[in-house]
Each structure stands twice: as C-alpha cells, then as structure tokens.
Design a protein around this nucleic acid. Sequence first.
DNA 1: TAGCGCTCGTTGTGTATGCAACTACATTAG
DNA 2: CTAATGTAGTTGCATACACAACGAGCGCTA
Lengths: 172, 172
Amino acid sequence: MRNCLDYHRTMSSLPNTATITAWRTFLEAHVRITERLGAELQLERGLPLSWYDVLVQLQEAPGSRLRMTELAGAVLLSKSGLTRLVDRMNADGMVERCPDPGDRRGTFVQLTPAGFERLREAAPVHLRGVQHHFGQHLSDVEARALAVTLGKVISGLAGSHTTAAQFVTDSA
Amino acid sequence: MRNCLDYHRTMSSLPNTATITAWRTFLEAHVRITERLGAELQLERGLPLSWYDVLVQLQEAPGSRLRMTELAGAVLLSKSGLTRLVDRMNADGMVERCPDPGDRRGTFVQLTPAGFERLREAAPVHLRGVQHHFGQHLSDVEARALAVTLGKVISGLAGSHTTAAQFVTDSA
DNA sequence: TAGCGCTCGTTGTGTATGCAACTACATTAG
DNA sequence: CTAATGTAGTTGCATACACAACGAGCGCTA
C-alpha cells in the first residue's frame, strides 16, 4: 500500500524553490498579521488575542461553555497553558469554572455576561483587522482555495505521528 | 487620495465567511506545521527550529555573517530575543560574535564551521519535513499563488502603522 | 467489587520571548 | 568642536508557554 507511491514520493521528497518561498512567506505573514492584530486589539480594547480567542470559542459553544480539554484544543494551547489562561480570565471576571456534574474530574469553563460584553466590544475591531490585513488581499475564490489547501495540510498532519525520517525510511 | 476608495472600503470592512474560515485554517496550519517540524528537527538532530533558522540565514548571507539587527529582522525576532538566542548558540559553538571594525557599536554574528556542519546535517531533515507536511499538498502553481497572495498581505502591513480603527475613521 | 489503566485538570519547573531602560558609539546641527 | 539626537546591542524584568509529574476520579475486567 505504501510502495505504489514510492516513485512519486522519491521524486517529491525535497521541496522546490516555489515551495520554500511559499513556506517562508507563510511564516512571515503569520508573524506580521498576528502581531498587528494583537497590537490593535490590545491597544483599542485592552484585550490580548489569546483572551479573544477563548471568548469566541466559548460563545460559539452550546451553552457558552466548554470543558477545559475541549477549549485547549479549540484555542491550540496545551492543557497547562489553558489552565493559566483561564486563571487570568477568571480573575478578570470573563469566565467561570463550573464542575461537571456528570464527571467529577471535569471542569466546564463558562462565559460570563461580562465576558460576553467584552467580546461584543472587541469583535468588530478584530474582524475589521482580519479583513483589512488579510481578507482584503484575497478574492472569495482565493480564500476558499486557501482554506482547502491548508485544510489538506492540517489533515495530513492530524493523528499520524509519522516523522519525515520514517517516511524516507519507508520509501527506501 | 483616501476618499476615492471609501465605497469599496466600506463594502469590504468586515470579512465574509470564506475569509474567516481561511484565517482560522491559516492559524491552525501554522501551529500544526511548526510544532511538527520543530519536533522532528529536535528529535532527529537535537536542533531547535529557531537555531536552524539562524544557521540558514547566516549561511545565505555574504561571508556567512550578519549584524545582530539584520539577523533579528531575518529570523523575525526582537533585538533582545536575538541577543539571548545568539548567546545560547555561541555557548554551543554554532556562531561567534565579531566586532564590526567599521562601527564599534555593531557586532557581526559569524557562522562557525561547527555551525555550518550542524546545518548541513539538519537541512535534509527540515526540507524533507517542509515538503512532506506542506509542499506535498501544493501544486507548483498553488505554491506560487500562495507566495504572491501572502506577499501582498505582508506588503500591506509593512511600514504603515495604521490601525483598523483609524482605517474605519478615515472611511467614515 | 477490587484493582488496574486511563483521563481530567493542576502544579512545579524551565525556557523563550518582548518591552523598556541603559551604555556605548555614531552622526548631525550649530 | 561641541552638543543634541539617533542607533546598536545588552540587561532587568515580566510574561506566557510547554513538559512532566501528580492527585482525583472514571470505567473496564475478572
């Protein structure tokens, strides 16, 4: 099942110039956009991007609440990272920790009214930034294509812990 | 000069669904790929991605050396961040600090033979990862298109410190 | 129902990073 | 030439994050 693709894999095992350029541009774009969006949100609404991300994920969730692990996955953070982030946001009244009656190990993170209000104020600023700094440069078709392409990238990474080295060994 | 575009700007001030999806996918793809590439490089060559980045930038520079500020810009790090990174890499023998005879404030960071050798060992692993996890999913045309698109995004951000809020105010 | 392995979330610890203040040097204005 | 202003790099400090170890609770197995 693997060998049928060996030829193609061997031929494509190293990136060409276009790929490397795309990769470097991707990295720079990520840094530039996130630092800009983060700075704008911090300056205009006093809200870190990581907090905003938590608020959005909670607001979208049924009941405006998520388990710690789910939330950590949604905001792309480690468990311990999320524990501390929720600590801070809780101290600021944006979220609350509620025990899960169905699983006494678990904790729900619940969006508070204050958190919802904060999100309502911040969302226009952030969305405008996303459009101005990112969406502005993409046609609708391009945006969809980008999502599809990067979605494939993500799927290719999901689950499998196969390393590139293993991949090469497999092909050899 | 600004008003001629107001109508268009007003119409495009908030991102549509495709843009938001693309943005979220972009963020997730960045996290997933970099964590994978970093893990592979660390596991197989004991080299952090940030070190690799420094080695590449130096190797590409004339004389295999760059000034601190230039290098900081190239690897997308703050001045202080680079100071510490170079400290560590210097302690490990990958790079050396050399005073700039032409400007006694300045310091060149010079790639050492050991650093070059380390890069030579690591590059195949990293490039294979870039291809396997990223390039694999892009045709040549897509890769070029992605670079162009994200290049526009970067250009749109460069220099100008105009915030989205100012942008909206301008348009109103 | 007792035991074992797994999962959930937190905590201790180490590390990488940015910002602001600083020193040393360079450059420009007068 | 001197004073003022600007720039290069480092340092102190605060912060945000990951990893590993942990305690508590779940659920399967016998």
